[in-house]
């Protein structure tokens, strides 16, 4: 089973989290990306995600391999929704378990950043004014590629750093 998965139904975070459990893990960090009601000054009413799944899964697997090599973590997993999503829905979930919380935080951050910049997934925003647009394609078509620091994350980081008992 690949460690970057696309799902058309709501992401079951409880089940996903159980895959990360490990007797040697002292902590677990997850990140949830939520559908936000605005972007770059426009009121957003809903989103659609589309992926080139064959390549996205391969690139996702490479990112998770890199995370496992760079950080001493136990397990990592990323789930991404495709299809139509409403405001407030969970669009992407990343979970990491590790012996210590520090590397779990770092690996989680690494995975979400790389997924957003490298994996062939596209997001179409529908706006309250009736317009719609592909993020980074339509309005930014003439502009340079978006920078590496992410200033339009429609998400809320949720760090469940469980206290390590050692």
């Amino acid at each position: 089973m690949t460690r970057l998965r696309f799902v058309a139904a709501p992401i079951d975070t409880d089940t996903a989290r159980r895959e990360l459990q490990d007797a040697g893990a002292g902590g677990y960090v997850s990140f949830e990306g939520w559908v936000r009601d605005h972007n770059e000054g426009l009121a957003v009413t809903r989103l659609e995600y589309e992926a080139f799944v064959d390549l996205a899964v391969k690139e996702g697997e490479r990112i998770l391999d890199e995370a496992m090599r760079r950080f001493p973590i136990k397990h990592a997993l990323c789930m991404h929704r495709i299809g139509a999503l409403a405001i407030g829905e969970l669009a992407v979930w990343v979970g990491v378990s590790a012996a210590h919380r520090g590397e779990a935080f770092e690996a989680c951050r690494y995975i979400i950043d790389e997924v957003k910049h490298r994996v062939p997934i596209w997001k179409k925003e529908h706006y309250a004014n009736g317009d719609s647009g592909w993020v980074n394609c339509d309005r930014c078509a003439a502009a340079p590629r978006h920078s590496d620091h992410d200033d339009h994350e429609h998400a809320c980081a949720k760090g469940h750093a469980q206290t390590s008992h050692k």
């Binding site: 991404h80 957003k116 062939p120 596209w122 980074n136 394609c137 978006h146």
Partner: peptide, 10 residues
């Protein structure tokens, strides 16, 4: 062949 527009996951 697939031409890949600027991506926007997450």
């Amino acid at each position: 062949v697939v031409f890949i527009p600027p991506v926007a996951g997450g």
